[in-house]
Write a protein that binds this DNA or RNA. Structure first.
Lengths: 217, 217
DNA sequence: AAAAGTCCGTTGCTTTTGCAACGGACTTTT
DNA sequence: AAAAGTCCGTTGCAAAAGCAACGGACTTTT
């Protein structure tokens, strides 16, 4: 059975009554599926038929470059969506999607968005709008990512990255990355990242332990 | 009068009959406006009410970082859209939009997407789908950008950047950037970029003159 | 409890990059 | 035609960052 409590943390379902949630689940033709740690949810160069909502666990969307480096496109935690754009376009998706931990995914279809029932039910337009809003928000998220990656020193990337968390969560927060993933996410080397974090801590800019950070000034 | 020929190069209007184009223009409540070189189309922290289609000229969407560097979010040429996501969400847009050259912009509204007429005309759903497809494509474009920026050496950024053009246009192509903008787009220093390009030319990887490139291997 | 595995900080070394500054080719203005 | 402006390559130098390797703390497995 699908976890209705978690659905509330996803903008697609947020605040809907139980009946409306049930309607929404059928609107998106939602199907849950379980994955083991390390399992691939999608392989390069297949079209992505559906987009996913992470119900539990963590998922990463990434590409590989020639040197064998991963490029993290999207790091997905419970309540977050992935693949909305690919699913709508139906084009080949040159990405890997992999379960970082054991994970449960709710797979959904865009068919009703593209071809609404006629006459459309009262909720249909609302759900369509929510989906489009998610798609638009994705653009904003990626803008933030570009903002980080465009900085030309690692320190500035870090400051931008951490500021974005601080803006949302306050001075103290936990990030969903280990060091290696964080480095990949920032487009940098892990040791260079550790070194820079050390320096910034020594300079009194911040404090941290593992993936928990506190910004001091 | 709006240039109907150019509309055909925009996925929103492509292939529509003249009557359908006229309908589409009213569907999006399209209004054209002229801008001088250097003029701002939008300033930081105002909500963006409409999204734009560049009819002529060039427009850049960018942010500024603390050091006064520009971060190019979107470089927009005739036939391209900008601001689709902000316009739909109606949130504050922390960006500058500026005419790089004299430009004519077709400003459009998302009102009909959010609240379709009922009953909807036969074209309405098609136009809505086209808009959403544009939004989804934007995500893919930004993915490509992230792919470039995630690379950890300038050379790899360059190879990724140029490969993306080569994949689309073949071995020889012209890019829409001068060196300074190209460097900003790659998140790098202009002189470092020039240096790396020189090296790659010396190594026989490519040939270039100004913004025209030929990939040799 | 030992062994294996994971995560992370550290460091030496080399390469890359940013920064600042200059000059040449070319275009536009006056 | 001179002057001003723009664009771009070049270079010296200092700082930054990648790479590789090691070791310690901690967790999980056997």
């Amino acid at each position: 059975m699908t976890n209705h409590a978690l659905l509330d943390s996803c903008p697609l379902y947020q605040g809907l009554s139980p009946q409306d949630k049930a309607y929404a689940l059928s609107y998106f033709d939602a199907k849950a599926k379980q994955y083991e740690k390390g399992e691939f949810l999608h392989q390069v160069s297949f079209p992505l038929q559906r987009f996913g909502l992470v119900l539990s666990g963590t998922v990463q969307v990434y590409m590989d470059d020639i040197d064998g480096h991963h490029i993290i496109m999207n790091h997905v935690e419970p309540g977050d969506l992935f693949g909305e754009a690919y699913a709508f376009l139906g084009t080949d998706a040159p990405i890997y999607i992999r379960a970082v931990t054991e994970a449960e995914i709710l797979w959904m279809s865009t068919a009703r968005i593209k071809a609404p029932l006629s006459p459309a039910g009262p909720l249909d337009q609302e759900l369509s709008n929510r989906y489009v809003a998610c798609l638009a928000s994705r653009t904003l998220t990626m803008n933030q990512r570009v903002q980080i990656l465009s900085r030309n020193t690692l320190r500035m990337k870090l400051i931008t990255f951490l500021s974005q968390y601080a803006a949302e969560k306050g001075d103290t927060f936990t990030i969903p990355f280990d060091r290696a993933s964080m480095a990949t996410y920032l487009g940098a080397d892990r040791s260079a990242l550790s070194r820079e974090l050390s320096r910034m801590q020594a300079e009194g800019i911040l404090t941290y332990h593992r993936n928990r950070f506190q910004i001091l000034k």
